[in-house]
Write a protein that binds this DNA or RNA. Structure first.
Lengths: 201, 201
DNA sequence: GTCTATAGGTAGATAGAC
DNA sequence: GTCTATCTACCTATAGAC
């Protein structure tokens, strides 16, 4: 069989943890989603917390690596921002569970979770982007801007629509089918917005 | 006594629900935080869900009202955006629990929660702001931009740093004391960023 | 109104047959 | 490895004394 039980569990767990959050997720529900018995969850992962960690540890490094590839590339600033936004939103489209997942943990035990995250070998590191912004600014090529606020602006605009998705869909009357299209359109909207804010005339 | 037991419960519940999320919050913990007995929680609010609703129903209308005052004001566009960002961030500084609170519910039962939210008499309604953006754009006063994306951009940049606070503090090495200062500085950073992106030269 | 004690239900984890 | 059955712990909610 190409797909192992362990993989089935990880996939099902990812779905349920995403939808419910860690505390509200039920081992029974994960077992049902994986079409296996609850006992098997413990056979493979011993505890709920272990299972959660396994899910997260599988997803996070992939994410961090793709992002850092862009941060550390030699692209000119505007192209780098465009590449970052495109990649970031693509990742989130393919893993819509990720932000809620992270945010949930971030709120239940912030210091421990962040400490663990930042101690990893592969973690998002926007410092090279921030230095690049500083250089362009000092060279007078872009309007003056605080690079940290800029970085947070870009990340905020990219991530938030995934976290607040149901709210946005409700407020602006966007149905499920249109949301994918909407998020793809956002890539260009964000990039142009940021470039307009930075470009000197 | 100026502070009733009911108020003590509501305050304690707000804290615990915020910190733990609905599912992980324990009635015992709320009782402890309020310095009262667990039985009293049920005497006053009958169930955990009722208590949660009471906490939320107390906070939400205040929030929505203040925001709508700005949306519906007659301020010119740039000033309205500035007023919105200032007010929004001020509210979140004073109620840092709110975003996590909303987001948590948003992820556990999205459709029901959003439906309830949007059925309320007082709810955030950005439509007037969006119409105003359309008008300024058609009059050629600002650069072309999709008003919905713009609205989401502004909201994203304001809210996200509160949701992702521990992450941002970790990534950029901002300690607790400096974070308030940082969020206050963000008001101006966001406003200027948006105006730069929109202003024609 | 406030407390203690406990009922009732559910979820995570384990044991043991196959 | 996979299943069923069960244990144990905990949490919401209630009952009842004061």
């Amino acid at each position: 069989m190409g797909i192992t039980t362990e993989e089935k569990i990880l996939t099902a767990a990812r779905e349920v943890f995403t939808k419910k959050g860690y505390a509200a997720a039920r081992m029974q529900e994960i077992a049902d989603a994986a079409n296996i018995n609850k006992g098997l969850l413990h056979y493979y992962f011993r505890s709920k917390e272990n299972l959660f960690r396994a899910v997260f540890d599988k997803a996070f490094p992939k994410f961090a690596h793709q992002i850092n590839d862009i941060f550390e590339s030699d692209l000119p600033l505007f192209e780098k921002i465009e590449a970052f936004v495109n990649k970031y939103i693509d990742i989130l489209i393919q893993n819509p569970y990720l932000p809620a997942f992270v945010l949930n943990e971030l709120n239940t035990n912030p210091e421990e979770f962040v400490k663990d995250l930042l101690s990893r070998r592969e973690k998002p590191n926007p410092m090279k982007l921030i230095m690049q912004v500083k250089m362009e600014m000092e060279a007078g090529n872009i309007k003056p801007v605080d690079p940290i606020h800029l970085a947070i602006n870009v990340i905020s605009m990219s991530v938030f629509p995934f976290i607040g998705r149901p709210m946005i869909q409700g407020l602006f009357q966007i149905d499920d089918a249109a949301y994918l299209q909407f998020m793809n359109a956002r890539k260009k909207a964000i990039t142009e917005f940021v470039i307009n804010a930075l470009r000197k005339d």
